[in-house]
Write a protein that binds this DNA or RNA. Structure first.
Length: 575
RNA sequence: CGGGAUGUAGCGCAGCCCGGUAGCGCGCUUCGUUCGGGACGAAGAGGCCGCAAGUUCGAAUCUUGUCAUCCCGACCA
């Protein structure tokens, strides 16, 4: 390929609305072009990167006995009716009608299609376990796509579905998939991607992990214990806090005029927020019924956990006079009947604290849950905080990071096989539902993630395993006959040797040529110029500046191939 | 869905308040000089000023509506 005819303008400056480095560089470098909100076309370099990532994924899926298949992008709504998701999923599932007025959907994930494909084909236990996967376009009508390829509405995704006859077998396979994912991210040049425990959300099932690229621009909050390696998405993380032993005091109602926030009340009463109880109000989406969460004053509610606990969607409450509560002065004692109350575990060992008195301008101090409220049930609904206690090793070591989710794995269970009536005949001659796992990786998001962690001010630095090309030839002063002859020959020789090479033979200034090369991010660069040819040499350098050397034009091909092999080997895991 | 902003050449923007020939920089074309980190000169090409109504002799500019895009939040396997 020659740069001269490579489509995609490379810009000196990024469009004004780019928010992430990866986004700016991929637009500037002529990789992607926005077509509409969350919709992108890929120019050749991006498409080549995607293809290489897909091939790595393909190899690793095949390595754990995956069978590559393909499901349709468009599916009849009736298929999604079977699993119940046609109605349970909101407007991110794009629904439309075909010419016959039949309800159709655009696939945002393919559990239904996978079960539909497999259910008639795997009737005997002897055919299990198996895994099927595809690499294909998905569409999710995201309420807010952003950040270039980080969050798009249409995207390419590898999705895999495994089917098992026992939980143990699923767990074994799950571990294999976990390992395959580690290999994929290592080979793609982002060993920074780590698995974290996650909430399984609408997918159903219990155990799941997300593979996160840890970066400040990430949209997810990750709870990490550097001491023991515990890692969890904040949505799924346990919040364990330590409470001081405070002197037991009698329960006392105190006048606290206009002291409505935790901060105000605590200042007013000279107490720490650690010694107070906060009320957070929600309403169930279904019927707007009120839910009050009580937790220690310094903590925040983990709404994912609250939803899971209540088995209901909730939203922040709008307080009306009919509710019979006093915002700013809400406490556990003396609430009206009929309100759902959730006590966070942080209150369990808090032996003396400040709380609202459910009376305008009054709080209690010296409150003690057991003494003043009797036996109540405690649930874990608080967000983990930095410095909190690690649920695994018990040290005060929790740190909070941000991450981009580039992949995930779920132990689904029988949610889909039951709802869609997929059964096999077991060895004991009884019909059973297979147990499923599912495993996803977003290809475009992975491209952006690699770019995010592997770039400099001038452009991306693609790992050799996914780079659009392995080597770029920059011919300076192409009008010089010697340069033309040597560079042309190098290009032909490298192509013949099977090296992926892109050749810039434009008659332009060195600055422009190098800047364009930096934006293309090709890991190895050969510069042919009159200057080096004078000493019968060409220059061979790495995009990441790790080396730069003169080579004799005669043994370039061998040297380049050796370097490529070395760089690929460095990214290939041992097992 | 709430809040904020922006739509003028491929990209970045000015012009709008105060209505009257559509402009600038980059990029693109041609010629010449220069050229190992975004060179210089000269001459060119390129625009239903997001769309639609309205006001007006006349609208990029004023009014109304509408669509699109971006940011923050809500939401999100």
């Amino acid at each position: 390929m020659k740069v001269a005819t490579l489509l995609g303008e490379r810009f000196k400056k990024a469009p004004a609305d780019c928010v992430f480095d990866s986004q700016a560089l991929m637009v500037r470098g002529g990789y992607i072009k926005s077509v509409g909100t969350g919709l992108f076309s890929f120019f050749m370099p991006a498409k080549r990167i995607a293809k290489k990532i897909e091939n790595i994924i393909r190899e690793e899926m095949d390595r754990i006995d995956g069978q590559e298949v393909m499901f349709p992008v468009v599916m009849p709504g009736s298929l999604w009716q079977e699993s119940g998701r046609y109605n349970s999923i909101g407007s991110e599932l794009l629904r439309f009608k075909d010419r016959n007025g039949i309800d159709m959907v655009l696939g945002m994930t393919h559990e239904e299609a996978a079960v539909q494909l497999a259910r008639d084909a795997a009737k005997s236990y002897t055919q299990y376990p198996f895994m099927i996967y595809q690499i294909q376009t998905k569409f999710r009508d995201e309420p807010r796509s952003r950040g270039g390829l980080i969050r798009t509405r249409e995207f390419t995704m590898k999705d895999a579905y495994s089917f098992h006859t026992s939980q143990e077998d699923l767990e074994q396979y799950y571990a294999k998939a976990y390992h395959a994912y580690d290999r994929i991210f290592a080979r793609a040049g982002v060993p920074q991607v780590v698995a974290v425990k996650s909430d399984s959300g609408m997918m159903g099932g219990r155990i799941s992990h997300e593979f996160m690229l840890l970066t400040d621009i990430g949209e997810d909050t990750i709870v990490i214990c550097p001491e023991c390696g515990y890692r969890s998405n904040s949505e799924a993380a346990d919040c364990i806090v330590h409470n001081e032993e405070y002197p037991i005091e009698p329960l006392e109602e105190v006048y606290t005029p206009d002291q409505k926030t935790i901060e105000d009340v605590c200042n007013y009463l000279h107490k720490s927020p650690l010694q107070s109880c906060k009320a957070v109000l929600y309403q169930r989406n279904m019927d707007d019924s009120l839910v009050i969460v009580f937790l220690r004053g310094d903590l925040e509610v983990n709404e994912t956990k609250l939803r899971n606990l209540l088995c209901a969607e909730v939203h922040a409450a709008t307080v009306t006079p009919e509710m019979g509560i006093c915002p700013g002065f809400i406490g556990p004692k003396g609430l009206p009947e009929g309100i759902t109350v959730v006590y966070d575990e942080s209150l369990k060992t808090l032996n003396s604290f400040v709380a609202g008195a459910n009376k305008e301008n009054y709080h209690y101090k010296g409150m003690n849950m057991a003494r003043d409220l009797g036996e109540v049930k405690y649930d874990s609904v608080a967000k983990a905080t930095a410095g909190g206690i690690c649920p695994v090793c018990g040290k005060h070591s929790i740190t909070i990071s941000r991450g981009i989710e580039v992949g995930n794995i779920f132990q689904l269970g029988t949610k889909y096989t039951e709802s869609m009536n997929m059964q096999y005949l077991d060895s004991d001659n009884t019909l059973k539902y297979p147990i499923m796992g599912c495993y996803g990786i977003g290809v475009g998001r992975l491209i952006a993630s690699v770019c995010e962690v592997s770039h400099d001010d001038y452009g991306p630095i693609w790992p050799i395993t996914i780079a659009p090309w392995q080597v770029q030839i920059c011919a300076l002063r192409i009008a010089d006959e010697n340069v033309r002859r040597v560079a042309d020959k190098l290009y032909e020789d490298l192509k013949k040797a099977g090296v992926e090479v892109i050749y810039d033979d434009r008659n332009i200034s060195a600055g422009v040529m190098f800047s364009d090369a930096d934006l293309l991010g090709v890991p190895l660069r050969i510069v042919v110029s009159p200057k080096t040819l004078e000493r019968n040499a060409i220059e061979f350098a790495a995009r990441d500046k790790s080396f730069k050397a003169d080579l004799s034009p005669d043994n370039v091909v061998g040297e380049v191939k050796a370097k490529i092999a070395e760089m690929i080997a460095a990214l290939t895991p041992e097992d």
